[in-house]
Amino acid sequence: MPLEQTDTDVVEFKGRMLMVTVLQVKQAALDKVNQALLAQLDNAQEWLRDVALVLDFPPNSDPVFIHEVVSMVRLHGLNLVAVSQASQVPEEVLIPLELGVVALSSRGGRTLSEKESTPAMKEVVETVLIEQPVRSGQQVYSRGDLIVMSSVGTGAELMAEGHIHVYGNLRGRAMAGVRGNTNARIFCQRLNAELVSVAGHYYVAEDLPEKLQNKAVQISLNVEALEIQPLNA
């Protein structure tokens, strides 16, 4: 082993944004759940079989029922990784099932309906346009592109499944392609961001080249690394 090899050459922690799909079990009737699930899987896109799936049960669900649903979901070939914390499933039930627990934010989440998963529909996803400054602590999410006509304060967060355009000073965080679109880009008039990310690959402020500070740039993903290029260069 060469001397100069560091710990991080062997193992390294890396932050990645991960999109999970939550399967909400709303009724405690196995047959009904099975039928409804099969019907929805028929309509779903192939990608649904690959995404990380989290099961969400009503609190105090019967452990036997949980066990059966888990077996069924695995039988359908879904990539089940965890049960939501809100389900309040006791540890002794989870351990034999080899499942983790994740805390999901209570906010929103959208229903993946048949319509939305049709490729033809994806192109009409609306662009979000913001004219006011995005203040520290505010979050803006767009299912398509996101355009901010003003500045984005330190501590503010922009997230878009598509591109992000900022026609002011970008001081906060900007995450484009949050659902894995590697072609998404970030454009800004003045780059002073805390963090920029495309499809989970990110740079923090420290990683941003000094000479592009405060400059108009575009940020894109080039294979595995972010590429920052000046605009009007």
């Binding site: 995005v134 203040r135 520290s136 602590g137 505010q138 304060g153 330190t154």
Partner: peptide, 13 residues
């Protein structure tokens, strides 16, 4: 200044 930016966002909503 950052805290004021934060409070402005809160006041706005």
């Amino acid at each position: 200044v950052r805290d004021s930016d934060r409070i402005l966002g809160i006041l706005a909503s």
